[in-house]
Nucleic acid binder design. Structure first.
Lengths: 343, 343
DNA sequence: AGACGGAGTCGAAGCGCTTCGACGAAGTCT
DNA sequence: AGACTTCGTCGAAGCGCTTCGACTCCGTCT
């Protein structure tokens, strides 16, 4: 392995000079800089990560804790992870992948070992075990998600409450009065994942204001589960004319089942989904949807964490404003009144 | 931060003794060991990763290069990544997440900087840029996937060729004679991703041996694309009675479209998929499938890489034997002959 | 009894880098 | 002209750990 000393010797300067060329922390004459850079190039020098970390107490690594379970949102998680990795690299950082498995111990381990300079946590629960540790930690952290108590923490998330409200508004404007929510799997609510509850709150509140009747049912992503949920919904609320789907895995089954039952989308039933744009656009009926901006969230988390590492940036909660894109799955409520041509 | 020296002082021993307690590389008396362990516990000591890496030239990190693109196999990639992270932790390693973006430069960087002790590469193309570097590298590497030339490399993958053959056999045994393959997106073939071509080879060869007619069409995962492909298939080969689907994203659209066209699965048409079991089991018609053992592949890759790091283990290519699980999407070919009750 | 070997511990020498203080040279101010 | 800066460079002191002798006991073998 070629070391700093090798480069220094090759360029005829001292080791510290090479170091300063690399870091730019002191001014170096153009001629020296060039000579050093040529030597680096020629020798194929890469600074030893361990030595650098030890001397500078900076590892240039950001830890990313992803959820272990794959019961929800796999594409979203993947998209976030890739966005984090890509953005981090652009800022000169690498990403260490931790699974939720270790839980709070992982936070302690990273903190104690200085393996990473900062942490990004995904799949944050309302009252997450890891948060007290994160608050005490020397190293900055950013959450993707929104816990109950955000004091002393930085968070990024979609404003799911506003997203829920937006769905209600869109459907209300189209004349719908009875709406069913196909929610996440029951387990997601049980572990108090914030986004699910917030979406529901947004839907409830705005529905109430707008005079809509709302029925919420948790639902797994399988055909069988969606089928059962759908049957129950129509049983309890035969007048349902619109669905809001939060569990992205449920969108395809839902559309297929509605079609099978002879309910046309959007003529008879409207469907709004909360999911990544890509998923919405590729459904059998392109879905009117509120996008989950996975990539933006990943990028923002990294930017925030890097800002903190550089001394800029403070704790703040950023809720990205939801955007509803109208595609082909929503339309005016079919009203059968005397005189209506369709009646 | 608490250091080795702090622990040593607290326990009343020298630093090296603490180090040996930690590593177990020299024998330590039970009493000393206990005292040191108590001190470690009480002080909440975690060894500094950088210092350890510098002194031992081992970072205890495994680098994982995942594909940047999300045009295929997202759940598989995610499952592999999680399996790698989990298995690595169980062996005392952490995982560094690299995206394919950097390409060969990433290999050089890891190699030069000693950031990781070993590398696991995913999304390997037949003639991958990174392979020459990996062959020269001091650090061991394992590929998940199978390139054209495997000399000097360790690889794990599903035996996709056998998987293809297995599909053909299953359908032949059920009496099918004309089979259509819904392949991966055209881009996947263009970049010469091994598994796609190997599957096809397996299908072709065995079909030929068994006297089946095979039609292969690349296909994106969207409804529109599957719809178009399906139309073309029935146009060219009206007698098609079975489908093999490789692009897992295409399974749902395919089933939905077949249903829409009044073709019952499995009564009129059989469908075999090559995808993770979870995907197959949750489809609208539970799919007969050859499993892509993502988790096993991830686990194996880590075990292999760890074996190499420990001096055990040599270069070898491991192709996992495919297993076909019969579910509800395949059945005997509907034969309309005079006298058949259905005719 | 003396030589020998293993178990248990310690001290010290690095690992390759960053960073601080120092120093000469050259420019700037009064 | 002398006193100050500023610029560019160097030497040396660590960062916290691993690891290699070396040393001391103490039990064992002849």
């Amino acid at each position: 392995m070629v070391t700093l000393a090798d480069v220094a010797q090759h360029a005829g300067v001292s080791a510290s000079t090479v170091s300063y060329v690399l870091s730019g922390k002191r001014s170096i004459s153009a001629s020296t800089r060039e000579r050093v850079e040529r030597s680096i190039e020629q020798l194929g020098y890469h600074p030893n990560a361990g030595a650098r970390a030890l001397a500078s107490s900076r590892s240039n690594i950001i830890a990313l804790m992803i959820p272990l379970r794959t019961d929800m949102y796999v594409p979203v998680m993947m998209e976030i992870a890739i966005a984090v990795a890509t953005t981090a690299r652009a800022h000169g950082y690498d990403v260490l992948l931790l699974t939720g498995e270790e839980g709070p111990a992982a936070v302690r381990r990273i903190e104690g070992s200085a393996l990473a300079d900062a942490m990004i946590l995904m799949d944050v629960e309302l009252d997450d075990d890891r948060l007290p540790l994160l608050r005490e930690a020397v190293r900055p952290g950013v959450l993707i998600g929104l816990p109950a108590d955000t004091t002393g923490l930085s968070c990024v998330d979609l404003d799911f409450q506003a997203a829920g409200a937006l769905c209600a508004e869109h459907l209300a404007a189209l004349g719908h009065r009875e709406i069913a929510v196909i929610g996440e799997a029951a387990a997601v609510y049980e572990r108090h994942t914030g986004f699910a509850e917030r979406t529901l709150a947004g839907l409830r509140d705005r529905s109430h204001e707008l005079g809509l009747r709302l029925l919420h049912r948790p639902c797994e992503g399988s055909y069988a589960a969606v089928s059962a949920t759908l049957a129950r919904v129509y049983d309890e609320r035969p007048g349902t004319t619109a669905f809001v789907v939060q569990n992205e895995a449920a969108t395809d089954p839902l559309l297929a089942l509605l079609r099978q039952q002879g309910r046309a989308v959007p003529e008879d039933v409207s469907v709004v989904a909360i999911c990544p744009d890509q998923v919405a656009a590729h459904a059998s009926v392109p879905l009117t949807s509120v996008a989950v901006p996975a990539q933006k969230m990943g990028q923002y988390a990294v930017q925030q964490v890097v800002a903190k590492l550089e001394g800029r940036g403070t704790d703040e909660v950023v809720l990205l404003a939801p955007e509803l894109t109208v595609r082909e799955s929503t339309g005016p409520r079919a009203v059968l009144v005397p005189g209506d041509p369709r009646s």
